[in-house]
Structures are given as C-alpha cells and as structure tokens.
Amino acid sequence: MVDIKALSRWSSFKKDKLVDLKYQPGFSQIAWFCMVVLYAPIVVLVVFSFNENRSVTTWTQFSWDWYIKAWHNEGIQSASLMSLEVATISAILATLMATMAALVTTRTQPYAGMNSAITIINQPLMVPEIVTAVATLIFFAAIRKVTGITGVGYLIAAHTCFCIPFAYMPIKARLEDMNLNLEHAAADLYASPLQAFRRVTLPLLMPGIVSGAMLAFIVSIDDVVISLFVAGPGETTLPLFILGQIRRGVTPEVNAVATVFLLISVILVTIIFLVGKNKK
C-alpha cells in the first residue's frame, strides 16, 4: 500500500515536468546565478564597510568607524557637496527642458521635423560616453580660452545635456498613457489652454516629471567619465573622488562612502519603480 503511494507521488512529479511546456532545463539555475552575480559583489562591499578591521577581506567586528571617518573627511565632504550641486542643478534644468519637449513631441499629429527633434533629444544616448567626454573637453577648453570664463558652469552644462534624454523618457511615457479627452473635457468646461494645462495636464503628468527628475539626478550623480574630462581643478565630484581613492588602493572608508552612495541610488530607483507601478 505504502509502495503504491510512493510510486504515485513519483509519477506525479514526473508528470509535472512533462507538462510544464515553458520549462527549459538549466534556465532557472542560470537566472539565479545571474542574480547572485549581480548582487554578490555589492553585498561584499556593504558588509565590509562595517568591518572594524582595516582589512577589506577578513571580518573581525562590526563597527560604524569608517562611516564616522568618512563623514569627517574633508575631501569626501566637498566632493559630496559638489556632486549634489551639479546633480541638482542639472536635473532641474534637464527636467524642465525635457518636459517642454515632451509636451510637443507626444500625442500630436506628426509634423515636419518632429522625428528629427526626437532623434536629437536621444542623441546623447547614441554616442559612447568617452567620445562625448572628449568632444566636450575640447569644446569647453576652446571656449574657456576664448572667453576666459571658468567655473563649475561647464560641468553643469555637460551634465544637463546628457541628462535630457533620461528625463525625457518617463515623461514621454507618462504623456502617452494619458487620456487626451481629459484636456478636451477641461476645454469643454471653459478652461483656456493654459488653465487646462495647469489644472489638468500638469498634475497628471507630475509622476512622470518626478521620475524623470530622479532619473536625471541619478545619471548625473553617477557620472564618472564625462566629469573626469570636463571637471576643472577643485570641481571633484564624489565619483571622481572615489576613483582617485581606488587608484591609490582599497580602503574601508571608500566602502562606507560607496555604500551610502548605493543606498541613495537604490532609494531613488525604488521610488521611480513604485511611481511607475502605481501608474498601472
């Protein structure tokens, strides 16, 4: 009796495999492997940022020391402020421009030049970062020489430029999902186009704009290559500071800064993800 039961369980297991048509051998293992590969290095980084020991390899004891040290490190302080300044200003500028552009490149009858406009907006995505970096360096160096103007403005301008397409994407997506009838309804209720925009379109578009701004912020604050070429003396952003530290060798202080940096990115991405999910 027991035998039969065991047999039937075995056979039903076999049957399940047989019937699951989507199953491909090894695929789930590869997927899990992929997840491990993506996260294992990050986990190591985070864990060892709390290691009391200077070694970034052998665990000794939990400690906040490296965070406290990093907090008091002047280099890190000024680099963080620089990053925040550049990313905030670039994100705001890029989002403003991207919003304006998105408003006239979605949900309209196609007009002459619309597709070229979209292509131009996406241009920064098509060119390898290092090429953009070289081009911007050469161009800005020339302007600097001619005008004599210096300052952080160059860095902000460069960041704003490559942030535009990133801000543009979610705003455009949001607009495309929006119901044109709502604005028609507003117009029907005597709203002028401007009023309709302020009272109906803009509030509905807000999640897209927020996502766009956050994406632009993330892309700007993460940037290494373009900043590396464009940033003048005294304009060291946080990634540039970290790069400099890495070139000199691995320290737990860098782990601590990197962990905080990661945390900020993860929080922003989570918000964008949740905003995107609510949309549906």
Binding site: L45, L215, I221, P239, A258, S265, V266, V269
Partner: peptide, 10 residues
C-alpha cells in the same frame, strides 16, 4: 541604475 564605478569597485 546604480553607480557603475562602485559596482566595478565591488
């Protein structure tokens, strides 16, 4: 969307 430099460092 997370920092490439930091991931490479990891």
């Amino acid at each position: 969307w997370t920092n490439l430099l930091i991931r490479t460092y990891a």
